[in-house]
Design a binder for these strands. Structure first.
Lengths: 144, 144
DNA sequence: ATTGAATAATACGAAATTCGTAGTATGTCT
DNA sequence: AGACATACTACGAATTTCGTATTATTCAAT
């Protein structure tokens, strides 16, 4: 559309750096709480959103080697957070599903993430909240 | 101020997840390019912003153990990206400063980050760009 | 001036993580 | 049935993180 000025870009970059730091803190506390590492939490989130997904799906999504994902799944299974199944349809693959305990960990993470989002919106008055959402939606859509 | 609705929060969370993924990709490519890991890049950014800072400052900022930061500094020194000096004022501490080569790596990272920000702004028309910036600034300020 | 405590970092080793190579099991195609 | 592709696991090397112990320096109190 139109070229934003370097000043505008710079301002946005600084603001987003702050937001990112905020989210990182939220992630870190969720990670600590369940003694999971960053990869395992991200894998858990994906598996929660994609029940019966395969190992390769998660690896591709998170851009890690398949073997890395296999290790991650080992850890998650050991901690009773996911289950590995061999589907009859294609017995080479594994279908990953989240357990109750895994869902609890996801909830903890998501709650933290949403709390951060809530705090952000609360900095604005209702009219600006709606406006801010409209704009983020527009950007997110454009992103596809 | 006013309570945002759960739907609003959810929408914002989803949008921000996308943004975060975008930034991660940018970081990953900067990391690959200079064969640095995520911690080392973040350390480099901090050192660039805080010349002559001490090891402990960086460790505190990045929330890692001091020994971890020491290892990171080893790597960055080995790759000629920072310099360790013993300041006369307090010879127990080290003063970290970035080198030209380090600055190049920072530039690469920052460029990628800004490119992401630029792409976001370009999704909006000029009026909305200004409006979006106003709102992010407001949130970032509130964040303190 | 000396001793003791506090500060700031490094040395070293254990545990965990990532990833590449090789291997196994299953499915598909001719 | 055989050859090739797919999906994953086993294993080991390299890297990273972090805790404990140690070194060097500064500060404070006597």
């Amino acid at each position: 559309m139109t070229e934003p000025t370097p000043e505008q870009i710079e301002k946005l970059a600084i603001a987003f750096e702050r937001f990112t730091r905020r989210f990182k803190v939220a992630e870190a506390s969720a990670v600590l709480e369940h003694s999971l590492n960053a990869l395992d939490i991200q894998a858990l989130l994906f598996i929660d959103d994609h029940p019966e997904c395969r190992l390769g799906d998660v690896a591709r999504h998170l851009q890690v080697a398949l073997t890395t994902m296999s290790s991650s799944a080992d850890r998650l299974v050991r901690r009773d957070m996911i289950e590995r199944q061999r589907p009859e349809a294609n017995r080479r693959s594994v279908a990953l599903t989240i357990t109750n305990k895994g869902q609890q960990a996801v909830s903890g993470y998501v709650d933290g993430y949403r709390a951060s989002c809530k705090a952000m919106l609360e900095a604005l008055d209702p009219v600006d909240q709606t406006e801010f959402l409209r704009l983020t939606q527009k950007i997110a859509k454009y992103d596809d």
